[in-house]
Computed example of a mutant assay.
Amino acid sequence: MAKIVNYISESFEELKSNVTWPEWAEVQKLTIVVAIFSVLFALATWGVDEFFTKALAGFFNWIKA
């Protein structure tokens, strides 16, 4: 148990002293970029899904007829 506590303690110390954290303004800009990209990617995925749904429905309707 002491090894685990020591590991966690050393991890927090490393995070405080050795990690370079970005400025708050940069974090906000990058968060907006990620949010916009996520929305665009979701819309693109939805569009491809809708296209294939309609294409397959049309194909199966064509086979039925």
Rank of each mutant, 00 (worst) to 15 (best):
S11L: 12
S11Q: 15
S11G: 15
F12S: 12
F12I: 06
F12D: 06
E13M: 04
E13S: 13
E13K: 07
E13G: 13
E14K: 09
E14T: 08
L15F: 08
K16F: 14
S17T: 15
N18W: 07
N18V: 09
V19H: 12
V19P: 02
T20S: 15
T20V: 10
T20R: 14
P22E: 05
E23N: 14
E23L: 09
A25G: 12
A25L: 08
K29N: 14
T31A: 11
T31G: 15
I32M: 09
V34D: 10
A35G: 12
F37N: 08
F37T: 06
F37W: 04
F37P: 01
F37Q: 02
S38I: 01
S38L: 08
V39G: 13
V39P: 12
L40V: 00
L40W: 13
A42L: 06
A42G: 07
L43D: 01
A44V: 03
T45K: 02
T45H: 00
W46C: 05
W46V: 10
G47L: 03
G47Y: 05
V48W: 00
V48Y: 00
V48C: 05
V48I: 07
D49N: 06
D49M: 02
E50Y: 09
E50S: 03
E50W: 01
F51T: 10
F52Q: 13
F52R: 06
F52Y: 14
F52W: 09
T53P: 00
T53N: 07
T53M: 08
T53L: 00
K54E: 11
K54G: 09
K54R: 11
A55E: 02
L56N: 11
A57S: 04
G58Q: 03
G58R: 00
F59E: 05
F59S: 04
F59C: 02
F59G: 05
F60H: 05
F60M: 02
F60P: 01
N61G: 08
W62S: 04
